[in-house]
Amino acid sequence: MHLDHTHPGPAAVSADARRPDGSRRALRIGLGGPVGSGKTATVAALCRALRDELSLAVVTNDIYTREDAEFLLREAVLPPERITAVETGACPHTAIRDDISANLEAVEDLEDAVGPLDLILVESGGDNLTATFSKGLVDAQVFVIDVAGGDDIPRKGGPGVTTADLLVVNKTDLAPYVGSDLARMAADAKAQRAELPVVLQSLRDERGVADVAAWVRGRLAAWTA
């Protein structure tokens, strides 16, 4: 906190692009989606793909305390001081949409502690298809679904599938085993989302998270432009 008089303005209240000292804050990208769709694995893969070129940090929103944060710590995708867990009182969607105060504290604390940061990934706890991030918390959001959750999810739509800045259909390698029709999922997603991008990925393939990482780089270039 700056007590001198050169920065008399209040600290950023929510989505302000500037930090209290006038510098640009990190780009914040939210990752949401149903339980088990591969959000944490995608975050881990993104950290590995981007950590050498960017200064980044992660906030997790767990249903039960710190499980996702601890997975990331175990996988050592980032130094521990760059990973923070927000406790959500059994309501992860509340913490990312209706009452974002704890998440805002977490992202600002990370910037204070390990900044300057280029990027902060905010991962939602696994929730339902209607859970989306508040614009007061993140600048862009990724919605992660998987082929095993049913290939009719894109057709059914819902706020996550329809409005997320990027839709990721994960675990495409499992499609033959669970009887999901990838072409149909892609077509349905396109119909629901018009021009908004969709990525089909398998983290087990060689390409891995490369398409999502490329999209993140694009957002970051626009943010700092």
């Binding site: 927000v86 009182g89 913490a95 009452d99």
Partner: peptide, 11 residues
């Protein structure tokens, strides 16, 4: 109770 000040995460 919906005032966004973090209370929902505390029992």
């Amino acid at each position: 109770g919906r005032f966004p000040a973090g209370g929902h995460a505390h029992s």
